[in-house]
Design a protein around this nucleic acid. Structure first.
Length: 293
DNA sequence: CTTACACCCTGCTCGC
DNA sequence: TGCGAGCAGGGTGTAA
């Protein structure tokens, strides 16, 4: 589920639960996620306070008392479930509570308060790592990471530099985390649709020859920011409601204009086209060949 | 350096 | 009803 807006939603949800709390106990139900968990994972966390929780691209970062940072990536299917410990043992706390599936609960953080935070990940493409804050920037995860799309560096000037001369399709360039970090398949499709740009076009083709940012590039830059901000405000897309254990879908139903809408009418006013699905770099691209030029 | 592709893993849906 | 194929929001490693 998690692209930048979803990860940010998770960050917001976990902040009041985790920040300031002490990690009383860590339980590992397996020795690895996508990668092996770092050595002495449990000992380095237990008894320490969580000082802050932040996001970089699709990564969640928890500052741990003592100077280390807990790095968490949700992969494709990772999610956090917050439970009041009593909720587990006192049915009726939530009237309609459905027993949640605990298969694929891989890591459990018992906090100093009544809360328990469980990392659940069916496909196990997610991972966690732990290292001193000072080593973060040079770590394998972050050293080649691109700009933060909602950060200060994001502008059509910077995009022009990043895209200049690239033959890769716009779709691939926007998905490349070494250029811009945080966009995923959904929001790339949405941004290109809203900006009216064809996903197959070479990324370099929207940078004008004289080096000045083109109008298309400016539109794309602004659209990316707008789409992400709107998604964050809506609380992400299809994330399950991680704050409760009832298994129900989150409130945010699809406001997608393109993603997942193959064969359905293009929603751009006056377009009248039909959304098509093609495959680029092994992944589905949804777009309207009529209004995306 | 850039680009392309296989791969990691589990579960669900679709067509036969 | 059963079963294989294809698909799913991620990143990584390798090869060309």
């Amino acid at each position: 589920m998690p692209e930048l807006p979803e990860v940010d939603t998770v960050r917001r949800g976990l902040t009041p639960v985790m920040v300031g709390a002490t990690i009383a106990k860590v339980t590992l139900n397996r020795p690895d996620l996508r990668f092996p968990l770092p050595g002495r994972f449990i000992a380095r966390l237990e008894g320490r306070r969580v000082e802050a929780l932040s996001r970089r691209a699709k990564y969640l970062l928890a500052d741990i008392e003592g100077g280390e940072v807990l790095i968490m990536h949700l992969g494709m299917s990772g999610r956090f479930i917050v439970e009041d410990r009593r909720g587990q043992h006192v049915p009726g706390e939530f009237e309609q509570q459905i027993e949640r599936l605990t298969a694929h609960d891989h890591v459990v953080f018992d906090l100093s308060g009544p809360a328990k935070v469980t990392y659940n990940d069916v496909r196990r493409f997610g991972f966690m790592d732990l290292m001193p804050r000072a080593e973060l920037a040079d770590s394998a995860h972050f050293k080649s990471m691109g700009i933060e799309p909602l950060g200060n560096e994001m502008s059509s000037d910077v995009l022009a530099k990043l895209f200049a001369g690239r033959k890769a399709p716009l779709k691939a360039a926007l998905l490349d985390q070494r250029l811009i970090a945080g966009l995923g398949n959904i929001y790339v499709c949405e941004a290109l649709h809203r900006a009216g740009l064809r996903p197959e076009r070479a990324a370099g083709s929207i940078v004008s020859a004289n080096g000045e940012p083109s109008e298309e590039l400016a539109r794309l830059s602004e659209t990316i920011i707008a789409v992400l901000q709107e998604a964050i405000e809506a609380g992400g897309s299809t994330l399950r409601d991680f704050a409760h254990a009832d298994g129900s879908l989150g409130y945010f139903q699809h406001r997608f204009q393109a993603y997942g809408r193959e064969d359905q009418p293009c929603l751009r006013a006056g377009c009248g086209g039909t959304i098509e699905r093609i495959v680029q770099s092994g992944r589905s691209t949804f777009y309207c060949s009529r209004c995306q030029g």
